[in-house]
Write a protein that binds this DNA or RNA. Sequence first.
DNA 1: CGGAACCGGAATTTCCGCTTCAGATTTGGG
DNA 2: CCCAAATCTGAAGCGGAAATTCCGGTTCCG
Lengths: 182, 182
Amino acid sequence: MRADARRNRALIVDAAVDLFTARGPEASMEEIAQAAGLGVGTLYRHFPDRQALLEEIAAGALRTLLEAARDHAARPVSRWDALLACVRCGADLPLALTKSLSDGAEAHPELGPLVHDLDAMLEDLAAGAQREGAVRDDITPREVVGLLSVAVCRPGARPDDALTTVIIDGLGMRAASRGARI
Amino acid sequence: MRADARRNRALIVDAAVDLFTARGPEASMEEIAQAAGLGVGTLYRHFPDRQALLEEIAAGALRTLLEAARDHAARPVSRWDALLACVRCGADLPLALTKSLSDGAEAHPELGPLVHDLDAMLEDLAAGAQREGAVRDDITPREVVGLLSVAVCRPGARPDDALTTVIIDGLGMRAASRGARI
DNA sequence: CGGAACCGGAATTTCCGCTTCAGATTTGGG
DNA sequence: CCCAAATCTGAAGCGGAAATTCCGGTTCCG
């Protein structure tokens, strides 16, 4: 592969990650090409269609996160700390699009298993955190994972913004409301 | 206005509220007409375009909520309770679309002031709740209102679902993290 | 009854992103 | 340095989903 082609491929992936992260997976191919400083045609030379681009990025992010999650889960720390560590890792990844892909994950042969494994692992950590007494037990582990996804898999999410902080604190046992507040 | 026309108009508004609430403001005009058991033509007879339908519903919801908010704010209860009461009221309203409209609220001459007044009032309650020591003070009143909006102005939101509960509990002073968790 | 108001939904138009392709340009081996 | 192959460009064309129009048929109500 020619040097400029390789460079341009990288430019495209970078630009796509930025746009997908900032604004969700609706960004148009033309926007992506422009952000990369290239023509649309170039984009299509490297990725036959939008799907291919999405999948390449999503699969990369998921693999990275899954590996990180395995590492953290293997460490001798509380399950809650391990879970938060995973969230921190996830915050750096372009997961907003991953989430939208995972809705119809069946259609993506490579993505399905990745999403499934990751979900299972996180749910396991959440259940452990509840057993530790660190996380409120009036919601299911599945809901815990879902809420953390909301925190992280949001266009423009940052690990220290108000919503993420409030959700994490709200998951804590200390925060659990004693009676229906609403 | 003929009796059947009045009835159909109500059917349309009801169906639109349901669809907008359940799936956000992207619902197509055809879906709405179908849900109302009417033809698209009838829908367009009553509302010249999508915008008009959106605005009618949004303005109604905002007016209702604003009035309720004024009531609650005038009562001799804690500002935090008053704020939660407003959230409870909001949960029954089709606010998901209101939110998306309010992004470009300048374009809607009637909506702009409503949104502005409501925001000001809620922000005031939030600030009061912080002074009372009921709400964590490491975020701004604006952020408090923003987070409650996330809780309520979500397609499919319900006042007792996991995300709403966790956000409300997470806003409490008791929940505030003592150090950076992430 | 009569006709004005109203309805239905197929046909048309609009909108917008995807994809192609005929040059222009760049690369890298010779 | 040269040239063929590889790559790039971006305007034009495609496609389809959703919005909107239009008019023959239907329904209300005095």
